[in-house]
Design a protein around this nucleic acid. Structure first.
Ligand SMILES: [Zn+2]
Ligand SMILES: [Zn+2]
Ligand SMILES: [Zn+2]
Ligand SMILES: [Zn+2]
Lengths: 138, 138
DNA sequence: CACTCAACTGAGAATCATTGTCAAAACCGG
DNA sequence: CCGGTTTTGACAATGATTCTCAGTTGAGTG
């Protein structure tokens, strides 16, 4: 047993590979939600290609670490976006995809209260608001 | 043009076929969310088989008419459930899938207000609350 | 530096939900 | 019963995501 891990339960720290850095970097270059496929293409165009499977794996990893928000577009495709580290929700333009991060203590309180009323514990929630943004109101 | 429709814009009324009735009926037999595939199997077991494609088509139709709620399971699969005809949200048990319909004028107001503040129109929203129900709190 | 080994990668195959196709069947009003 | 329309269902096609697995890479070691 030549392990160098601290004695406890050992989850190996992920390696900072070129591919992972590349994905992390492109995620900082746009502000709206993009699909894994689009991110894969972006990387290719930027001359820093990463295999599609790796893009998927990396995005999942980042999502697990709360480094990106994941949500499902209306047709079920998973889409990703970098996000601030505080809990928040999104106001998304149905037409152009523009996104605004919003927060509201009131909603947070309401969801906890409702769940509590019904005896639910370990409560979490998802909330997305869709609409047409001013720019698209041609 | 031999149409018998009233002169205006004509969207033909859907026919109440055996298949559509069968789907509508089976939707009343359970209270939680089920995938189209599961619903298709249920129908088969109940000796009232409906083609998978038709199940999908019918569920979409019912969703368009707000006769069923649609939401996406975590892996992107569309799942369906009969629901009351008023706008509401769901409190879902992560462990056993038990569902409670909840409403809250406060949230409705909040989402409209937020969207309005940012100049968004045609606003809609999705909100799901997840937790562990009392029964599963073994 | 050369070595070792698990973590990591990527090309392509495999999955799997969902949608498209289209000829045959069911309906409906007349 | 007739003609036109809608609906159905078996099957193919699509498309995102996951799996496979052999080859690569990186970090720690002596
Ligand atoms: Zn817009
Ligand atoms: Zn929240
Ligand atoms: Zn439960
Ligand atoms: Zn609402």
């Amino acid at each position: 047993m030549t392990s160098t891990e601290p004695a406890g339960a050992g989850r190996a720290a992920p390696r900072p590979t070129r591919q992972r850095r590349a994905v992390a970097r492109v995620m900082t270059t746009f502000a709206d939600f993009r699909s894994a496929q689009e991110i894969h293409e972006l990387l290719e165009q930027q001359g820093d290609p990463v295999g599609l499977a790796t893009v998927y794996r990396t995005l999942q990893l980042m999502a697990d670490h709360d480094e990106v928000d994941v949500l499902r577009s209306e047709d079920g495709e998973a889409i990703y976006r970098r996000c601030s580290d505080t809990h928040h929700h999104h106001l998304v333009c149905r037409s152009c995809g523009a996104t605004v991060e919003v927060e509201g203590p009131a909603v947070e309180r309401w969801t906890s209260a409702i769940a509590g009323d019904h005896g639910f514990t370990d409560v979490s929630h998802t909330l997305e608001i869709f609409g047409t943004c001013p720019a698209c109101r041609s």
